[in-house]
């Protein structure tokens, strides 16, 4: 497989790795705590997309068994290809975890603002340097 082919075949992975690095970069490079939380969200979203990508089966449809009155419980004669539902279910849980993390991070940011009077990390660090 040539490199162009492998790039185009794996474009979803390239996209989500790029997204992940954007998130990680924001977490590391930004001093604003709210932006850090947003970066963390993007980072988590990339991981969630990874699971969603892997659930896709080529030509697959939504994993709901169609109701066929003639053949109760059957496929109506032909095979149906379903996408894998399990990763989606897992990601529902992961999204809940992500929401909880975001909520807690924002609550902490509010308290940091209350304690330091700023939401900027560098200013808070400078304040700590000064006041111990």
């Amino acid at each position: 497989m040539s490199s162009v082919q492998s790039f185009s075949g794996l474009w979803a992975y390239w996209l989500l790795i790029a997204l992940m690095m954007v998130g990680l970069y924001i977490v590391i490079a930004r001093d604003n705590l709210i932006k850090k939380v947003m970066g963390l969200n993007i980072f988590q979203a990339a991981a969630i997309l990874f699971y969603v990508t892997m659930a896709k089966v080529t030509g697959g449809t939504a994993p709901i068994v169609p109701h066929d009155p003639a053949h109760p419980g059957g496929h109506g004669g032909h095979e149906i290809v379903y996408s894998n539902p399990l990763p989606h279910v897992l990601m529902l849980t992961a999204i809940v975890v992500g929401v909880a993390t975001t909520a807690l991070a924002l609550a902490l940011a509010v308290r940091i603002h209350g304690e330091y009077g700023t939401s900027e990390e560098d200013e808070a660090v400078a304040y700590d340097m000064e006041h111990g």
């Binding site: 980072f43 807690l104 991070a105 940011a109």
Partner: peptide, 14 residues
């Protein structure tokens, strides 16, 4: 303590 918890959260989530 609050700032430490925030750092811990960022690292822990990653």
């Amino acid at each position: 303590a609050v700032m430490s918890a925030f750092y811990y959260l960022v690292m822990g989530t990653i």
